[in-house]
Structure formats: C-alpha cells, structure tokens
Design a protein around this nucleic acid. Structure first.
Length: 1085
RNA sequence: GGGCCAAUAGCUCAAUUAGGUUGAGCGCCACUCUGAUAAGGUGGAGGCUCUCGGUUCAAAUCCGAGUUGGCCCA
C-alpha cells in the first residue's frame, strides 16, 4: 500500500522534525539502518572525542554534522560503518572547573578534600557534561551509536592507554628525565606546549652588566625574567655575529661595555649614556671563553659555580639583530634552549624554584618568595651591585596556562617522556601512509609540525587522569614534579621500572588482591598498589597522563582493545577521521605519535580537515567573550534541516566558515521549494488513484513525453555529479548540484511544464506518465537529500512510499546512475531551449508583450548546427513555452538580411598579433558597426588603427547581430558563450488580440475564484461586461476557451448573491466581471 | 618573531589546478506574473579582483615585498 497522505500546505520545520523524531523512536530507525548494513563491507570511522565541558558550539555542530553526512553516505553505499562516538573526559580543564565549583584555590585544598572525593567529583562533572553534549548531538539529527559511546574515563579505555604506553616502553621509547618544561605554578603541574596560550602582557625589560674577570669592562645582557638571573650559568653569543667594545659616559663616569654591534646604539640610549665611542671590534668567536662574575653572587651563595661556568659560549639561539644585546643570559635550570645547550656543555642544572613557583633555600636571600614577586627586589639588588644598566617594561607575548590563565614558568623538573624525537623519521614516513584533504594540510602544515616536534612529556602532577602505569623501587627519590636541584645528575635517568599493560597484568603482579573485572584504574585506587619482585618493592609513580594521551589511543580504544580483541585485526587502522585544523597539533599529532610509538603505524588512513566556524563578521567565536552563534538559536529560527544544509554547503577542506543568517534563510527557501514541488502532484495523484508501485516508469515508458525523459536524464547526471563530489570530499558541491536540480530543473522548469497535464480531468496516458516521472524524481531526490536533511527527507519518503519500501529513507541505497535514462543530447537540447526561452522572455519584455499574449512568430538565429538541431527537434515545445504561433529557424549558414553586425575581439588572438596595440585595436573593433559580417567590411571600419602590413584574421573576431527596430531580439548562450539570438515578432493580429484579451479575462476570473476560496473543481456561472465593443467582440470569439479554463457552465447576465462582482482595468479597457458558484446560482433562481 | 591558509560585487563564493575583455547565488531597487503564493519572471544598480613593485603583448591568476584575518608554532 502506498500512502500519499495529506500533508501540510506549509513547510513547518519544527512540527515536522518533532514528528520525525517520534517516528524514528517508534520504529527504531537507527537500529534498523545499522542492522540493514550489517553484512556490508566494514568501514572504520573513529570519532575525535569532544572535551566534556560546556555544551555544543557552532564548531562542534559543524564537525558532527560533517561526520554525519559522510557516515550516512557510506551507509547508503552499503558499508557496515563503525560509528561509535567518543568523549574526552579527563584532564586539567575539568579539574579547574570542579575546583571553581568547590571554591578551591590550590592543590592543598584538594589534598584536604581527599583525592578520592575529588576524583569522584570530577567524574560526576564529566558525566553531566557528557549528557548535555549527547543530547545536543542527537538533537542535531546526528546518527551515531549514542547508546554506547567510548569514554576516556572508563576502565577499558584507560586500559587502552596503558597498553599503548607499555608497547612504547617495550620499544624503549619511554624515559624519565629532567627537562625544561612549562610549569603552571597555580595548578602545580607541567603543562604541554600545546596547552600554553600566548597573550600580550607588560613585563620587565632589564639590561644587566656582568663584570668581566680577566679584563676590563662588562658584558651586557637583556632579560624579561629577572627572576631567572639567580640561576645564571653562562652567557651565549653568536659565533659569527659582530660585537663591539664601547667606551661610554654617564654622569661623569666612564664604562667599557661589550655588546652586539647592531644593538649598541639602542642599548646605550636605553641606558641614557651621554657620549660613547666604539673602541674595539670583535666577532662572537673572539668573545668565547671570557669569564665573568655572577651579578648576584652574594645574594645567592649557592649559585652554580663549577668549572667552566660563568663564561661565554657560542649557541645557535643567539641573534645579534633580534631583541636584547646579542649576549644571552643562559640559565639551564629554566629555559628550554638554555637547558639543551647547558647539557651539551656538561653543566649541572641549577633550578632554585619549586613546582609552585616559590624559590627554594638554594635561592639564598630570595628563598620562600614567589618568583614573580621577587622581580622588583632582584632589580633593586642588581642596581645596588652596580649591575643594572637600564630597567623598564616591554609589551610582548608570554605563555599562560590554558585553563587558569596563570603565567607559566620555565623550570626544570623530572618528567616522563615518550621520546618521539627519536623516531622522527618513522613518524615522517608514516605520514605518507595517510591521505589528507586538502593535501597541503599534510604536506605543508602537518609535516612541518612533526619535523619540529620535541619529545612528548606525558606526565602531569595532577589527579584527574589516567594514572601512569609505572612502578619504581620505593626507596629511590622518584618524586617527579619537584625541582631538580644541583645535586641531581643531569641527563636522562634510566630507571628500573615496571610498566603494566592491562588490568589482568595488574592483578597478577601487585601485592594486593585486585579483581581485574571490577577494578577502577583512577589514581585513588592504583596509588595504594605495590609490586614486590626479587626482594624489591615498587611503588607507583604518582603522576597522571597528559590528557592528549587519552585521545591519542582512540583508534584502538574505540574497539575496547586490548580487552576485546575481536575487531582489532579486521578494522584497525581507521579508514577515516574528520576534525578541524587546530587538531594538527592535537589529535592528528597525538594519534600519529602513539600509533607509531606503540604499533609502528599511523592509526588513520584518511583525514578530512575542516576549518573553524567564524562569526558573520569574520571574527573567531569565543565562548568566554560571549562572541558566538548558538546552534540552538539557529535551530529555533530555521530548524535542524536548514541549519545542517547551511553548514554542509560550506567547503569542508581546511577553510573556515563564516556563519551567515542570510545563508540560512536561503537554505530555508530552497527547502520550501522542495516542499512545494513535493506536495504539488499529491492531490492529483490521489484523485486519480495513482499507485506508484503498480504504475512504474517501465509501465509508462511508451507514453513518456520529451520533458519527462529530459528530467530523468538530468536526474542521472545529478546523481553522477553528486557521487563524484562526495568521493572528492566536497559534499558542499554535491549539495549545490542537488539544490540546482531541485530548484532550477524540477521546480522552475519541469513542474511548470507538466502542470497542464496534471490539470486534465480525464485519465490520460500522458498524465499517468507524468505522475510516474515525478514520483521517480522525488523518490530519488529524497534519497540524495537524506544525508543532508534527514528530517524532511524522511517525511517525504514516508509519504511517497508508505510501507511499500524501507522503514526509513536512511536504509535506502545511494541512488546510482541508470544508463537507460542517460541522454546527454537531450540535456544539451533542453539547455539550449531554456536559454532561448529566457532570451525570448527578455525580448518580449523589451517589446512590451506579456507572456499571456501570443506572438505570431519567434525567429531563432542559430550560431551553429548544434543549436539548430535542438530547435528543430523541439519546435513544438519551444513554441509552447514562448507562447508563439510559429517558430522560425535561421540556420548558421543563412543570415537574416535585416540585421546589422558588430564585432567582438578575441584577445587571445589579438594579443600575440598586435602586441602593445592590442587594446587599441580591440576598442576599435568593439565600436565598429557594419552591414554584413565579413572581414573586409570590418577592416574598412577599423582601417585607421591598422598598419599597412596588418590584417585581421577570422580567428580574431566573432560577429554579433544588431537588432532591428521593429523586432526585439536577445542573444542566448550557454556557459557564457553566445550561441545565437531569439527575435520576438510582437506585431498584433485580430486573432492574437482575441486570445490575449481572453487570457486577461481568464486570469481575473481565476483571481476572483480564489478570493471566494472556491474548490478547483467547483463550477461557476459568469458574467462579463466590457465597455469597449471591439474588445468585447474579441473576447466573445474565445468564449469556449474561457468556459473551459475557468469551469464556467453558464455565461450570461448574473444576479450576484453568493458570489462576487468586480471592475477591472485591463490594457486601458474597463471590464466588469461577476461570478457565482453554480450551486448557489441555481439555488437562488 | 616563524610556518601554513585566505583576501574578487553589500554578503557567500566561482573563474575549467602552468595567464587572454571577471561570473553566479543571496540581498537591494524597478517592473512584471498570479491554478506552487512567505513562490515565479525580466531588468537595473553594485568590482582601481587588499596594497606596492616585478615578469609578460597580456596578470584576479606567476614572482617579490607588505597589510588584514584565521589556525599553528616560538
């Protein structure tokens, strides 16, 4: 049974979407669709897990909608798609939210509250946020396996992280070491480079003079972090740079200062020196080996003072032309580059600062002070010591903690690393095993990033995360996160460590009783577990993983591997991932790192990288600054389908998307057009008892008219085009093609053309053929639209098919091209006809003749045989569309003597021939008017601009016709090329006036019928009074036509009772029209 | 400070991926149509193609230097 039920007149998105949600729920539409494809070839998609804080913003909405459209597309293509959504639920952002909620200030508060309580609170918060996101995504119409998302806080997922880490450890890629890291002094943890956010701030800018030991004078350094000066170990120069010795005077005193030649003027100006002269010149190399005195030697008695320290060395991080003085204060206990160079030079690392940013006892006078607070005191002490050259402030960008916005400190602490820098070549090689769209994302952006990437610090001194599965001997000093003192050896620490890979191994090896089925792996549980082997007791390293490591194992975590190994071999690696460009440093990178470190392969084969959602004015959206478009508002205003179509109409490859309310409105208009096309034939089909399952296209093949075959041919090209675009990952272009088909071809052309066939009252083969055609078109169109606008597609599909097909449109196969209906020639023909029709409409308007009035003839002057063929093949259709009594064809060989001609220049030919004068010749050609289209005539017209030996060639110009006065003509073309001209002869004859006026009457009567809200079938009685006798006679000639068109059984005088009487002004003639429904008229008789 | 990407009509984007007289949709204005009606048709206004240099007979397109925006890195 088919349905073709009554549906709403108006497209009401909200009502419709609500109905579809309920329907999906009733029939388990998603579950049925998944089941329907369960025998298909597998397709392994991995969802990049959104972080569970806050609700979905426009960026996440775009991301999930893009995923949805491709997942639905693949399902329709028959794949058994893995679509498990995921959530990233650990990490510092959640900790700081919970801390805020509980009113905590620092780690102390957490410790007092209790680790277990805090972990529980974080878990509760994350789960709450997850619920909100799940609801949003489902509300957007995204179909994923919402019943079973992967959560990074679940034991099986944390186990996946442990497993990956243990694999990397087996390969020798895990090490503990102290390094210079970015430390948040509030969160008291290391944070990753990609968690550092740079902001412009005002900072100290101090120039400091270091006294030289074995010679006169002082070297000058510059720093924005005076608090690092206690840890000064050496000074670096650029070996090849130019340096000078300057004798400078200030306040009557003279000093000898050494610094970069390029900077000396600027620095001396800062120091307010009155006079100076260069007395010596050096290269950096000359300075190497000079030794100096620590400027705070007395204040910091424990300052580093080993062999070779406080001397000048070369380093490649020095730039004599950059900020500063060309001599760089280097403190290996702080800066990352200083650290690397210091280690090369074999210095022990001195870092008198703890994880909370407070100086240790080693800092002498400054012990116990927060480093930033000590800056002023240090500057004052330098001044007292005569070491301060200048002190001021500078605006520069400085790193801040991404969560709490505290300024970060570079300090050296013990951390755990995956030594990704060691496997850089493998990482780079593995990149080549993945396909990226757009390709520059891989070959430029990502490759650059990977080449620069340092070792990955995976340890965090926090609570809410996957604990490091590392146990070390208990009596060793393993406290990570504490500052490395001078006593500690520099370089990497090769630990005696045990790395646990999963819960089973944990249960086997720990001293305590643990049930692997039920054990939770969070910090509060595993901290207490110990391992005793060979007489040594091992305790767990207290750190948790960097939250990026969680998401990094998603490709196997999604499959619950290693706990469940049933799918890993078949599915891994992922066939497809899709995220925004900020994930270059994030998930694209972390997955590559973990996949390579643990398995030796890149864990994804194809990447589609999209951009960000921007504000309508191009600004970035920002929740904290309340600059955003809320997807819920977009839905309230236009509905889910419209929002999805708008989002999906944007290029998904690397480019940002500007949100645009006008664009939303346009999409709504398109959907409304589709709605109208869809509901237009339904009443007629119902009336005639059309059964689409019985009366298929094959049944009516012989009765199809040209226009039917055409729209079916267009449908085939649309399917082919869309499929190609989808395969190129340009769903936006596929949508353009579909919208163009629905709006331009189906709505504005096909429906226009078949309306009269549908209005016929008797059954006819032609009418049935039109039904079958439009049914097929709509049925396939909703399948093509389903991935984009799943709601309206479902509604239309359900109405069209009832229970004769699938329970949901989303179970349909992706429509494929049917060769039988392909007809490129016909498509071209109609494209020409439409171009001619458009030109004809234009010409009519110029001639002041409405389409309602027939014209005696339209002359089509074709520029080529192809156009002439099209016109001669479809003369009747063209005559009909142009409302012309006759179509006259002037073929390309012939020409119309009444015409004049002008020329259009082809610059690709003129350029090489005329060189610099090409533009001048072009202008002359464009202005020329000639009587016949010949080169001779044209050369004569532009003779002034041609040299004696020059002549025009056929290829340089194309001739264009000029319209005669009495006839209106308009050029038509295809794809920008002119292909001919349509001339409309608008002269009037009695016959034409008769029909014209009759049509004017009909139009008025129809409007009055509508005013009276009459049914289409309703019969009427009619009276027509026309002042002008000539016009009255002309109209009377077409009484039969009028009767039929307006369903008037009686025409005569009328006493209006239950009807309407109205006066009209038509072409300066007054008409009085009265009508009444026949039933009412008879009753009143 | 460095890398990548972008910049064309009021807005969103094209211009066939090694140059050839800049286009479409939306919006706006005027006219028109009325058996899809919060639709349809025709026309119009609106562009120093971000700036400045260079290559070339010819540059939106290629090269160089900037500017602005986005992302990434320091």
């Amino acid at each position: 049974m088919y349905s073709l039920d009554d549906i709403g007149d108006q497209y009401d998105a909200h009502e419709l979407e609500q109905r579809v949600f309920e329907y999906w729920d009733d029939v388990d539409a998603y579950e049925q669709t998944v089941e329907h494809r369960s025998d298909g070839e597998s397709f392994f998609f991995v969802d990049g897990p959104p972080y569970t804080s806050g609700s979905a913003h426009m960026g996440t909405t775009w991301n999930k909608t893009l995923k949805d459209v491709y997942l639905r597309f693949w399902r329709m293509q028959g794949y058994d798609v893995t679509d498990r959504p995921g959530y990233d639920m650990h990490g510092l952002p959640i900790e700081t939210r919970v801390e805020e909620k509980l009113g905590f200030e620092n780690k102390q508060d957490i410790e007092e509250f209790g680790e277990e309580n805090f972990v529980e609170a974080c878990k509760e918060y994350a789960e709450e946020q997850l619920e909100g996101l799940q609801e949003d995504f489902q509300d957007f119409g995204v179909w994923m396996d919402w019943s079973d998302p992967y959560k990074t806080l679940s034991p099986e997922y944390m186990e996946a992280a442990w497993w990956g880490f243990s694999k990397a450890a087996e390969r020798g890629l895990v090490e503990k070491g102290h390094r210079s890291i970015s430390q948040c002094p509030r969160c008291e943890t290391a944070i990753a480079n990609n968690e550092v956010e740079y902001e412009d701030v005002e900072d100290h800018s101090v120039y400091v003079k270091f006294d030289l030991e074995d010679r006169d004078g002082k070297i000058v350094i510059w720093t924005t972090t005076p608090w690092t000066i206690p840890a000064n170990t050496f000074v670096a120069v650029d070996e090849d740079g130019d340096y000078v010795g300057v004798r400078a005077q200030k306040n009557g005193e003279e000093e000898l200062l050494y610094l970069a030649e390029a900077k000396h003027e600027e620095v001396l100006r800062e120091g307010r020196y009155e006079e100076y002269e260069i007395v010596e010149e050096f290269t950096g190399e000359d300075l190497i080996g000079w030794s100096y005195e620590h400027p705070l030697a007395e204040e910091v008695p424990d300052h580093v003072d080993a062999e070779g320290t406080h001397e000048i060395y070369a380093a490649d991080y020095v730039d004599t032309g950059g900020d500063g003085t060309g001599l760089v204060h280097s403190a290996p206990g702080h800066g990352e580059e200083d650290f690397e160079r210091g280690r090369e030079l074999g210095f022990s690392i001195f870092c008198p600062v703890d994880g909370d940013g407070v100086y240790t006892d080693e800092a002498g006078k400054y012990a116990g002070e927060f480093v930033k607070d000590a800056d002023d005191e240090i500057i004052a002490d330098l001044d007292d010591n005569g070491a301060l050259l200048a002190s001021g402030t500078v605006q520069h960008s400085y790193g801040h903690c991404w969560r709490c916005d505290t300024g970060i400190l570079q300090i050296v602490t013990d951390q755990w690393f995956i030594t990704t820098a060691e496997i850089k070549n493998e990482l780079l090689a593995n990149i080549a095993d993945s396909e990226w769209a757009p390709d520059w994302a891989r070959d430029n952006r990502f490759r650059d990033f990977v080449e620069e990437a340092p070792d990955w610090n995976v340890s965090r001194q926090r609570y809410w995360g996957t604990p490091l599965p590392v146990w070390t001997p208990e009596n060793r000093d393993d406290g990570t996160g504490t500052a490395a003192s001078t006593e500690r050896a520099s370089g990497r620490a090769n630990e005696d460590m045990i790395v646990i890979s999963d819960r089973e191994e944990l249960a086997e090896r720990v001293d305590q009783d643990v049930d692997p089925e039920t054990v939770d792996l969070h910090k509060n549980t595993v901290d207490e577990l110990t391992i005793t082997e060979d007489g040594t007791t091992y305790t767990r390293v207290p750190d948790v993983f960097d939250v990026w490591l969680d998401a990094a194992v998603a490709s196997w975590g999604t499959l619950n591997y290693p706990e469940d190994d049933s799918q890993f071999d078949e599915l891994w690696p992922a066939d497809f991932i899709l995220e925004a460009h900020d994930q270059t440093r994030g998930w694209f990178w972390s997955q590559l790192g973990m996949g390579t470190a643990a398995i030796g392969e890149i864990p994804y084969e194809e990447v589609l990288m999209h951009g960000h959602a921007l504000m309508p004015d191009g600004r970035a959206m920002s929740k904290s600054k309340d600059i955003l478009i809320d997807p819920h508002e977009a839905i309230d205003r236009h509905g889910r389908d419209v929002m999805r179509m708008f989002l999906l109409s944007n290029n998904p490859q690397g480019e940002d998307m500007r949100f645009d309310w006008d664009g939303m409105q346009t999409m709504e208009n398109h959907l409304r057009t589709l709605w109208n096309v869809f509901r237009f034939p339904l009443p007629y089909m119902r009336l005639d008892g059309f059964d689409p399952q019985e009366t298929t296209l094959a049944e009516v093949d012989d009765d199809l008219e040209l226009i039917d075959e055409w729209v079916l041919a267009r449908l085939q090209s649309t399917k082919a085009e869309m499929t190609d675009h989808f395969e190129d990952r340009r769903q936006d272009k596929a949508l353009d093609a579909l919208v163009d088909f629905v709006v331009e071809d189906v709505s504005r052309f096909y429906v226009q053309a078949v309306r009269e066939r549908m209005w016929e009252e008797e059954d006819s083969a032609s009418k049935t053929a039109a039904y079958a055609t439009i049914y097929r078109v709509l049925r396939e169109t909703v399948a093509l639209l389903a991935p984009y606008a799943p709601f309206i597609s479902e509604e239309i599909y359900g109405t069209l098919t009832g229970d004769a097909e699938h329970a949901t449109v989303h179970m349909c196969d992706w429509p494929t091209v049917e060769e039988f209906w392909v007809d490129e020639q016909l498509e071209d023909d109609v494209a020409f006809l439409r171009a001619i029709e458009e030109a004809g409409a234009n010409a009519r308007q110029q001639a002041g003749r409405k389409l309602r009035w027939p014209v005696p003839r339209v002359v089509v002057a074709a520029d080529d045989d192809r156009v002439a063929e099209a016109v001669s093949r479809h003369t009747d259709l063209l005559a009909d569309r142009l409302n012309a009594r006759e179509i006259e064809l002037v073929s390309a060989e012939d020409r119309w003597e009444e015409l004049q001609y002008s020329a259009e220049a082809d610059m690709s030919e003129l350029g090489p021939a005329f060189g610099g004068r090409a533009g001048q010749v072009m202008n002359a050609l464009n202005e020329a008017r000639i009587d016949e289209p010949s080169l001779e005539a044209l050369e004569a017209a532009v003779a002034d601009h041609l040299e004696d030996d020059e002549s025009l060639e056929e290829s340089m110009v194309s001739f264009v016709t000029e319209t005669p006065d009495d006839i209106a003509g308009t050029a038509f073309g295809l794809n920008g090329d002119d292909r001919g001209v349509a001339y409309v002869d608008a002269s009037l004859t009695e016959d034409i006036e008769s029909e014209g006026y009759a049509r004017e009457v009909i139009r008025r009567v129809q409007e009055m019928r509508k005013d009276l809200d009459l049914d289409v079938e309703e019969r009427i009685a009619l009276e027509i009074e026309i002042d002008d006798d000539r016009v009255a006679d002309l109209v009377a000639e077409r009484e039969d036509l009028i009767r039929e068109e307006v369903r008037a059984d009686e025409i005569g005088s009328l006493e209006v009772d239950d009807g309407e009487r109205k006066e009209w002004e038509v072409e300066n003639v007054t008409m009085e029209i009265a009508l009444e429904p026949l039933a009412a008229a008879e009753a009143s008789d």
